[in-house]
Structures are given as structure tokens and as C-alpha cells.
Nucleic acid binder design. Structure first.
Lengths: 153, 153
DNA sequence: CCGATATCAGGGGGACTGAAATTG
DNA sequence: CCAATTTCAGTCACCCTGATATCG
């Protein structure tokens, strides 16, 4: 224990550190749970979006996942190559190329959700329902606070 | 809104989804805050570990950050190339190569902490101190629950 | 002409597995 | 011999910036 430069608040007592650890633990558990299904967490997140919001273009998926269209394009190409989604030109807007789940994609998503739900249940087991609600609402307020100001530098 | 395969709980009401969003927002804000300091978030995390726990070998740093020694080795090589850390063979254990902060590393870490603290303050502004404590403790319990069982498959 | 979209080109940090050499 | 450490080699999904072409 040296801590010459950290502020007076120990690492273990920082909320940001707890968020980082929780995300890493969740991400690792999800990675492991989805590994033998041959799908990554970002890819699974796209399948969830398509099931949840319906057909969506690459640009829409990028906005939903907070990444660039170029990054999303690569994820989408993987999913398309694996036959999990298909894309047909939009009938009215020639440039739009909305993606939709294929039957194979729906089947794989269903299998993913079983694994994901098991991980979530394990993660939330120590919390009461009230605590879960409070944590969720508090984190959502944090996200909103970070997104309101685009970092004043 | 289609939601053919998701369970009955909407996406927005899932704690796991809130954790993911909070981490992504925090990570994006930190990326932006540290960008002009020419250091990445994983690299900064290593500097924090060295300041917080003292000198540490590559294997120790890998364990602290929950990644493989190979991955940590690459991060450490970046930091060493930038003159932020230095490594000297351990006097008693010839194979150990503990890393320590250089003066340049300490200065950069101090600059990083200013930016990071500003981000954290912005993120936690909507929460009361009690809420911060509850969120932190709840998340820590979640991490513990995930780490206890190594995924029963 | 402009805005939004899709996509190609290029690059980089981070993460992994596999394997080899070293040391206690 | 074994366990831990370090590190080379190779691979990959992801994420970015820049640039281009297309459509409304």
C-alpha cells in the first residue's frame, strides 16, 4: 500500500471502481457463457437489438450500441456471414440496408438468452428486488449525467 | 418493439443492462478525458496499481487486472517504452522483473487523476452519498457472487 | 449542395491461445 | 521434475479516423 498520488478515497471505496469491476466480472461471465455458441458479446447485443426494436439499419444499430457505423458494419458483416441476420435493400430508400434476424439467428439468440439469464440470476442473487431497482435507477442517472455534458475539458 | 425472444423483463429494466451502459458511458468519458495525455484506460489502470500497491511484477499486475500475463506484458511494454515505468531484475529472484513508476509516470498519473476525478464527480453528481455507498456495496456483492461459482455450465 | 447512409482502407491497443526458456 | 514467471509468435474481434460513393 503506497498510495502517493491517489486522493484520500481508497480504491475499494470508489463507485467508479466498483462499476468497472462489476462490468468486467459480468463481461467475463458472459464471454464464458457464450463461448461455445461461437458468438461474442457485442454480436449478441446486436441480435438483442434486432429482436427488441425490430429491423434496423447499420447506422441505427451503431447509435443503439454507442459505437461508430464503421465498427458496427464489421460486427454486422460477421453476423451476416454466419447466417444469423440478413439484409435486404429498403423498398423506399435505396441506400438503407436494414438487417433482420434469420431463423438461425432467432434460434441462437434464444440459446444465448438462456445462458445470459443464468449469469444474471447468479449475479443478482445477493440483492433484494428493492436493491436491484435502486442500483438500476442510480446507474441510469449516472449515465444521464455523463451524457448531458460532453466533457467540458 | 418486437421482443419475441427476450424474457418478460424489458431491456431498460434489467440491472445487467444498466451496468453495461454505465460502464460504457464511464469508459467513453475516461477515454475522452485521457486522450490528449496519450495514455489509455488500461495503461492508466496499471499506473494506479503500481501507485496503490507498490512495485509489482508482470504476473502480479495481470492478476490485479484480471487478464493474462501475455496481455499485461504488452501493456507494460507500452508503458516502459513511454518511460512511465521502469523494470529492474529482483535482487533475490532472478526471474522476477518488478515494475515501478518513474518520476514521469508519477507526474502523468497525477495529471490522469485530475481528469478521472472530474469525470467521477460528474457521474456521481445525481446521487446522494448514501446512494453511492449502496450502489458500491451492491455491485461488490454482485462481483463476489459471480466469482464464487466459476460458471457451472 | 447538404445531410445521412453504407462501406472501403488503414491502423492500433488489447485480449486470447500456444509454446519456449528461465528460475527457484 | 515441477511450478511460476517472462516473453515470443500468431490470431482476432473490436474500435477508431479518413475517405469515397450513393441516395433523398
Amino acid at each position: 500500500m503506497v498510495r502517493k498520488l491517489m486522493s484520500d478515497v481508497p480504491l475499494e471505496e470508489r463507485v467508479g471502481y466498483a462499476i468497472k469491476r462489476a462490468f468486467q466480472a459480468q463481461r467475463a461471465a458472459l464471454d464464458h457463457a457464450l463461448r461455445d455458441l461461437n458468438i461474442t458479446v457485442p454480436q449478441w447485443a446486436v441480435l438483442v437489438c434486432l429482436d427488441y426494436y425490430g429491423d434496423a439499419s447499420n447506422a441505427e444499430l451503431a447509435r443503439l450500441n454507442a459505437c461508430t457505423p464503421q465498427t458496427m458494419n464489421e460486427i454486422v458483416r460477421h453476423l451476416e456471414a454466419d447466417g444469423l441476420i440478413e439484409r435486404q435493400p429498403h423498398p423506399d430508400h435505396g441506400i438503407l440496408l436494414p438487417a433482420r434476424l434469420t431463423p438461425a439467428g432467432e434460434n441462437l439468440l434464444a440459446a444465448c438468452m438462456e445462458r445470459v439469464s443464468a449469469v444474471e440470476a447468479r449475479m443478482l442473487a445477493p440483492l433484494t428486488v428493492e436493491e436491484q431497482k435502486l442500483v438500476r435507477d442510480a446507474l441510469n442517472r449516472c449515465v444521464q449525467a455523463l451524457q448531458e455534458e460532453p466533457a467540458p475539458v
